[in-house]
């Protein structure tokens, strides 16, 4: 489960959107927590899509998720945007944080919004696991 926007108490501004490289991640510090932030290509909707999940890789126990490769699995209903851990290559659903290759493991997911061309990440009560 994710921290839902209505439980957000604070938004942290991390950088201008154009500081992000399309289809790659950067690490950011949000309320002292390392967060991996990814800018996805426009999927045709004209919407800027940014995802934020925990930077900590539960499998290697190192903060590396922002350095993973973006991708997708499935088509149609089953389509998911994903990130693969650069260490041991487990694949995670960017929207839910669920690990798709070793089910049962989950990354925290953070709400993201864009204000004045800047990326802001929400936090409040500590982000919770599933």
């Amino acid at each position: 489960m994710t921290l839902t926007p209505d439980r957000v108490t604070t938004w942290t501004r991390i950088c201008p959107v154009d500081r992000l490289i399309p289809e790659r991640g950067v690490a950011a510090l949000v309320d002292s927590e390392p967060v991996a932030v990814f800018l996805l290509d426009d999927d045709g909707s004209g919407e800027v899509r940014v995802h934020a999940v925990a930077h900590h890789d539960p499998f290697s126990n190192a903060n590396v998720m922002a350095r993973g490769i973006i991708g997708s699995v499935g088509t149609g209903e089953d389509y998911r945007d994903t990130v693969a851990s650069p260490m041991y290559k487990q694949v995670f659903d960017l929207a839910t944080g669920q690990c798709l290759t070793e089910p049962g493991v989950c990354l925290s997911v953070y709400p993201v919004r864009l204000v004045d061309g800047h990326v802001e990440i929400g936090h409040g009560a500590p982000p919770s696991g599933p």
Binding site: V26, L29, P34
Partner: peptide, 14 residues
């Protein structure tokens, strides 16, 4: 950078 918004902070998780 270690963190895009805190480039001078060292990441303790590595």
């Amino acid at each position: 950078v270690s963190f895009v918004n805190a480039p001078d902070t060292q990441d303790d998780g590595v």
